[in-house]
């Protein structure tokens, strides 16, 4: 006669399975330079939908300014870069839960984020503007109320737009910049909050004279983000940024992707 496992044995099995899942779900998060060198790989979170900082190349690999920086950073540590594509809303959770070691994800340095992550010295910078249909008259923030405004959820554009847009503005939040831009192009929104590089990309594909820049929301700098407490790694990252800036390599990479010189990078007081 077949003997079925007892109920207690089954419960024990279920419990150990649950424990095993719980244990294996704990990511191999590297905290120090030594741990990364031992692993031989630096897991870098990077946006792939934020041209030209983060794009997907024709052969499907992450590419762009951030990718170049990420690879150089890994090289300076003597390891290989493993680039993990992240999105605007999930990049900080990816870092905090240890799925990646660092973020080179066009993460603008803001006081809110500085409470969650540790920022390196800035390695890039851009302007955030309101951009949209030529016919949409936006001269000052109060005018936004008259239009449907698209923005990528949780982005710096979102935060700065939400801060200045009057109460009751129709802000439509999309999952990424690509969708917000698509909404502008298909006429679902009148204006969007966007960063200057994205505006550059839109002008390449949009009909001439259809859209223009309305107002500047803020100027921002990007920092490489680490988990709080990765002090040793932070030192290495800052040394890397300083070396890149001093040698002119940072500006060369910036010119390669954005056709313009790197703006002055000052880390904001946070």
């Amino acid at each position: 006669m077949t003997r079925f496992p007892s109920r207690r044995a089954l419960a024990g099995l279920a419990l150990s399975a649950a424990l095993a899942v719980g244990l294996s779900a704990r990511p191999a998060a590297a905290q120090t330079v030594d741990e990364i060198k031992k692993k031989g790989v630096l897991n870098v979170g990077m946006l792939v939908d934020f041209p030209p900082f983060g794009i997907t190349s024709l052969d499907g690999k992450p590419d762009g300014f951030d990718a170049d920086i990420a690879k150089e950073l890994a090289k300076s540590l003597g390891v290989r870069a493993n680039i993990v594509p992240v999105t605007g809303p999930n990049r900080i959770p990816y870092l905090l839960t240890g799925q990646v070691d660092v973020l080179v994800a066009s993460l603008a340095v803001t006081p809110e984020r500085a409470k969650q992550v540790a920022f390196s010295d800035p390695y890039a910078g851009i302007r955030i503007v309101v951009y949209g249909k030529v016919g949409a008259a936006v001269k000052e923030p109060a005018d936004l109320k008259k239009f449907a405004v698209g923005v990528a959820r949780a982005s710096t554009q979102d935060v700065s737009l939400s801060a200045i847009a009057p109460e009751g503005t129709n802000i439509r939040r999309f999952d990424d910049d690509a969708s917000a831009v698509q909404a502008l192009l298909s006429g679902q929104v009148d204006v969007i909050g966007a960063a200057t590089p994205v505006v550059g990309e839109i002008e390449k594909i949009a009909p001439k004279g259809a859209f223009d820049t309305k107002i500047t929301l803020r100027e921002q700098v990007h920092g490489i983000a680490l988990r709080p407490g990765q002090d040793d790694l932070m030192k290495a990252v800052n040394a890397f940024v300083a070396q890149q800036a001093a040698s002119g390599a940072l500006n060369t990479t910036f010119r390669k992707w954005l056709n313009t010189d790197l703006p002055e990078l000052k880390k904001p007081a946070i």
């Binding site: 605007g88 809303p89 999930n90 900080i92 959770p93 809110e112 409470k115 969650q116 698209g150 959820r153 949780a154 979102d158 439509r172 939040r173 999309f174 999952d175 969708s179 909404a183």
Partner: peptide, 24 residues
Amino acid sequence: VSAISADDLTSVANNIQSRTFTSF
């Protein structure tokens, strides 16, 4: 539907987590 900016439950959750960083 949150992908096309309809403010359903998931969209609201995304908004809250992006504002407060309490994703989990």
